[in-house]
Nucleic acid binder design. Structure first.
Lengths: 119, 119
DNA sequence: CATACATATGATCATATGCTCATATGCTCA
DNA sequence: TGAGCATATGAGCATATGATCATATGTATG
């Protein structure tokens, strides 16, 4: 079933055991895909700023646009992405939508990242 | 000095206090840039697999190419990026370079990401 | 229900990114 | 030292991505 995977690369494989172990521990394709998506979501100047801003306070699209100096449309597009990945949620109050972080993971991710770059 | 920033967005700003607080807490531009770069590094199918594989075992370029089913060249290009961001290091033994994670942050980041997507 | 405002969405364009091929470098050993 | 393997690097191409403009949806309020 996966025997053909062994030979996709034509190079001389040096450490078969290591490769096999790595294959065993490997992330399932679905999880990998979602993980990558999550990091992609964090991997943008604008989105990162949005997420960091929402750590402390709830904000509406308009606030974020003013804060970041970009179009409300741009903010909205990015928020959609973040919503789809469940990184943010919103609550409607009249015509206004207040956005906030959905859980603590986002904050945690940025914190670990900061730890890394500060070393 | 930053008074012009207040008005980049022409929209009606609703919550000035929140915006000001967010400005205070905001990441410094330099740190933000590095954080984004770090997440960019994690935000790729191939690099994510490389990093996850190196969590457990040291591997050479050739091993990784075989594991992932891509060119050694492609692996090498990605490793360069990961090296530049200090996510991996290598140790030379003869003609072979063994790569490994540089610190625990990478593993931690992926773990938090997995927690998030598993909810 | 008509107007105004808050947000969402679609299309488009410029730039960034990842892969491959070709080639260069570095190391070992005969 | 020269042949051969392991890795690195540069160029080029195809695709992905983020910003904006134009337009649509949705909500309150007169």
């Amino acid at each position: 079933m996966d025997s053909n995977q062994e030979d996709i690369c034509l190079c001389r494989v040096i450490h078969h055991e290591r490769i096999n172990q790595a294959r065993k521990e490997a992330l399932k394709e679905g999880e990998l895909e979602k993980t990558v998506q999550l990091f992609k979501a964090m991997a943008d100047h604008t989105r990162c700023r949005i997420l960091w801003a929402l750590t402390e306070v709830e904000m509406c699209v308009c606030d974020l646009a003013a804060l970041l100096g970009i179009t409300e449309s741009a903010v909205s597009h990015q928020l959609r992405l973040l919503r789809q990945l469940q990184l943010v949620t919103n609550r409607r109050q009249g015509a206004i939508l207040y956005y906030r972080l959905n859980d603590h993971h986002v904050h945690q991710l940025i914190s670990v990242a900061l730890e890394h770059i500060r070393e």
